[in-house]
Design a protein around this nucleic acid. Structure first.
Length: 805
DNA sequence: ACGGGTCGTATTTTT
DNA sequence: TACGACCCGT
């Protein structure tokens, strides 16, 4: 590991030679500070106030990223800081990557040596590797994934004879996470917290940390807490880093938790060169331990701080801004900003109610098709300019189903992630073993995968030996084999596995080509074959994923580097070029923007989420409202809010009232559309009759009526039509399409619908391999080898490439 | 040890 | 619905 753990001063050595001229500049900016041109006065202040504490309150769409990247460039160009002296923290890996790119574009290659730009977790991992011994770890400690963590906790809970049903491991994981977010170690855990989890919380926490240390492992929260603890307990270490990291930059400051806040305060205490950028109105990670208080309190923490407000919005139309501002104004706990824009033109925010979630999805699909053709009174919008932002991921399904049906290309952002897939984690556990054969968790995971006849009993024996003799799991397994434990059969299997692990490890040590080695491992372990022979329809997809994984390895120097990357950077961006509509959660949408944004599911209970309100009361509601604000402000030209009167949840029908956030939208900036399903038919009336029993519902309904009257059937529909709010030819056309679902499919993007020949062998991620039986338009009938005959959209299959693994 | 069946319960949001 | 935990027969 230590080889990839490069020293930032090495990196710096390369930099110094080429940038001496820039550093020699005395004081002021260099002559060609073109990056300062075009900044507005506030942005400029944010860029040029380099020394001392600075808080930049940046509203949505106010050019925050630009100011931030310019600031870094400015620090470098003025010679104020060298690349390795800037500690720049972003919230996501994506943001880090983006910043790296943009700074690079501004100042040229010099950013190569910016080793301290990344997420809190990535930066802390780096720091912790340097000082691992101070936390009782070795520098090559492994970073646990959620799976490993849960398995470990489960064992501990079982060992304590606690009923797993009443006290689920997930709950304990949540608790421990919360404690770590606050910077609490088992030693300084408050007594009332330790009493959680049936009185055994504190005890289990201590046990868990102990186990982690034995396994030479750290979980996500540990990365922060260990570094924090080290800084607190070792002033000389802290002093070193204070001297090295002279300029601190924090993006999305509103999302920092207590541990992160304490860490920053320690690092910045002396030089006080800390610049925090954030927007209290976009604090949406309270459930993960984020403390809005951090940003609200900044001026007290750093007296004399310069506070700069970015309020000029360059993104959205005035209508969108007005609606977003009005909604967020209902929050009490905020610093308060007033977004403004020079723009005067633009569409109002659209609002529409539907009978149920399915219809909502159908309508949005049709609306998107219309938008891409430019028939909605706007210039045509390309599919990649359109996003659907949902509150919870289960809402995505309705859209996926519908879009698959009509052949509308889409992509789910942040869905089930590549590196979280079962087969990928298994494969990675094998890689971990090859790198460090004493990785007990990895061993446990793959010991009987594929099935080798090493079941529960064998696992227990190994565990028992390990505990009795204080050995690692792998060493315990070795002992068991050597001493003739287990049945002959099991012993043979275990012995072969251990031999293989030794062989792979030897290959790693000998510096064998890691891509080839990975293939060997997957082959020799029998893991790929196991999926090849599996008869489940999705097993072919898994084999494909494994190929993909091996391909991904090529971009890394060795297995170690790859594993570190995956542990910290769980995202995977696969740009495949085709123009697609994006579907994602509101959380995932933060920091992004789209010409057109659909915001479905605005129903009380779903959004704002009932759970949020139950668990966190008013604070929970306010966070939901910030989520609404984030959603609305993603839109540049058009935002469409919708809700459904009925929705299938767990396969059970539930009716709901429109979201209270809808009441908060200013009517003069909203255009109300009449839903196609509510034109006088019995369904429409039922929609009004159903789900209106609750007390207070009448008031709510009246409020909506004032704004919308959306769920009211033909009378209001006519009124809306008279008011010109609804484009009735378009509506009739949609009706026609609804009545004739088999009408010719609309091909949005020719690239998304490649041509296939009859009989051609194709691959589908979900259904595996098959032969094309029939083609109509962009729809194929495919006889899948394992999943049977299915109709699929051509965009979702690829020509099969039977490259041997 | 393992596969197949039934039953119960769960769904925010993610580094 | 959909995935797991659990039970049973092989």
């Amino acid at each position: 590991m230590s080889s990839s753990d490069f020293d930032e001063f090495d990196a710096f050595a390369g930099y110094e030679a080429q940038s001496l001229s820039a550093r020699a500049m005395p004081g002021g900016p260099p002559g060609d500070a073109a990056y300062l041109d075009g900044l507005n006065p506030e942005q400029r202040a944010a860029v040029e106030t380099l020394d001392g504490p600075v808080l930049v309150l940046a509203g949505a769409g106010t050019g925050k990223t630009r100011a931030l990247t310019c600031r870094v460039a400015h620090l470098l160009r003025t010679g104020r800081a060298r690349p390795n002296e800037i500690f720049a923290v972003t919230f996501t890996n994506k943001a880090a990557r983006e910043m790296k790119e943009r700074v690079g574009a501004l100042v040229g290659g010099a950013v190569e040596g910016m080793p301290w730009l990344g997420t809190f977790h990535a930066l802390c991992a780096k720091l912790l590797r340097r000082h691992a011994e101070l936390a009782g770890l070795k520098p090559n400690f492994t970073i646990l994934d959620t799976d490993d963590q849960l398995r470990l906790l489960k064992q501990l809970i079982a060992a304590e004879n606690i009923d797993e049903k009443r006290w689920p491991p997930r709950m304990l994981a949540g608790l421990i996470d919360r404690w770590k977010n606050r910077g609490w170690t088992p030693a300084n855990l408050p007594a009332d917290e330790a009493a959680a989890f049936g009185g055994k919380g504190g005890r289990l926490y201590a046990d868990y940390q102990e186990r982690l240390r034995t396994l030479n492992a750290a979980d996500f929260g540990d990365l922060l807490v260990h570094v924090l603890t080290i800084f607190q307990a070792h002033p000389e270490v802290l002093a070193t880093w204070r001297g090295r990291l002279r300029y601190i930059l924090v993006d999305e400051y509103q999302d920092t938790n207590v541990a992160q806040y304490l860490l920053l305060r320690l690092l910045a205490a002396e030089h006080r060169n800390i610049c925090c950028v954030g927007d209290d109105d976009q604090s949406i990670y309270g459930w993960r331990g984020a403390e809005v208080g951090n940003i609200l309190r900044f001026e007290q923490d750093f007296p004399g701080a310069a506070v700069i407000r970015l309020e000029r919005n360059y993104r959205s139309t005035p209508h969108i801004l007005a609606v977003a501002s009005e909604v967020i104004a209902a929050n009490e706990r905020r610093l308060g900003k007033t977004l403004w824009t020079d723009e005067t033109e633009g569409e109002k925010v659209r609002l529409i109610g539907h009978w149920d979630g399915e219809e909502e999805a159908r309508w949005i699909g049709e609306e998107i098709e219309a938008l891409t053709r430019g028939t909605r009174g706007m210039e045509p919008v390309s599919p990649e300019g359109i996003a659907i932002l949902v509150r919870a991921s289960f809402q995505m399904r309705a859209f996926e189903d519908r879009f698959l049906n009509i052949g509308l290309p889409y992509r789910v952002i942040g869905g089930p992630r590549f590196y979280e897939r079962l087969e990928i984690r298994d494969a990675m556990a094998y890689f971990r073993l090859a790198v460090s054969p004493d990785d007990g968790l990895a061993f446990e995971r793959v010991m009987n995968r594929p099935k080798r006849g090493l079941g529960e009993k064998a696992a227990q024996s190994v565990n028992l030996i390990a505990r009795e003799r204080g050995l690692t799991l792998v060493d315990a397994a070795r002992a068991l084999v050597a001493e003739g434990g287990l049945t002959a059969r099991a012993r043979g299997a275990l012995g072969r596995l251990l031999e293989a692990i030794d062989r792979w490890h030897e290959a790693v040590r000998a510096g064998a080509d890691h891509v080839a080695l990975a293939e060997t491992i997957l082959d020799e372990s029998g893991y790929v074959d196991h999926w090849r022979n599996d008869r489940a329809p999705d097993s072919a997809g898994r084999v494909e994923n494994l190929k993909e994984l091996v391909k991904a390895l090529e971009q890394f120097e060795n297995l170690q580097g790859f594993l570190e990357h995956v542990a910290l950077v769980m995202d995977n961006e696969q740009e495949d070029g085709a123009a697609k509509v994006s579907i994602m959660t509101l959380h995932a949408a933060k920091g992004l923007e789209f010409p057109v944004v659909f915001l479905p599911g605005w129903e009380d209970g779903l959004f704002p989420s009932q759970r949020s309100m139950d668990e966190n009361g008013l604070a929970g509601l306010e966070e939901e409202r910030r989520l609404a604000y984030v959603g609305l402000t993603r839109a540049r030209r058009l935002a469409v809010v919708s809700f459904a009167a009925n929705r299938a949840v767990f396969g059970r029908w539930q009716s709901a009232l429109p979201s209270r956030f809808i009441d908060e939208m200013p009517p003069e900036h909203v255009e109300v559309l009449t839903p196609p399903g509510l034109h006088g038919g019995p369904r429409g009336r039922a929609a009004v009759a159903g789900g209106r029993g609750a007390a207070g519902a009448d008031g709510r309904l009246r409020a909506i009526e004032g704004l919308a009257g959306v769920v009211r059937g033909s009378e209001l529909e006519e009124r809306a039509a008279r008011a010109g709010a609804y484009d009735s030819p378009g509506w009739r056309r949609m009706q026609a399409r609804r009545a004739a679902p088999s009408a010719a499919p609309v091909v949005i993007d020719a690239r998304a619908a490649p041509a296939f020949a009859l009989g051609e062998r194709v691959f589908h991620q979900k259904f595996g391999y098959g032969a094309v039986q029939a083609i109509e338009g962009d729809k194929l009938t495919v006889d899948f080898e394992k999943a049977g005959v299915k109709k699929v959209v051509a965009g979702y299959v690829t020509a099969a490439d039977d490259v041997p693994f």
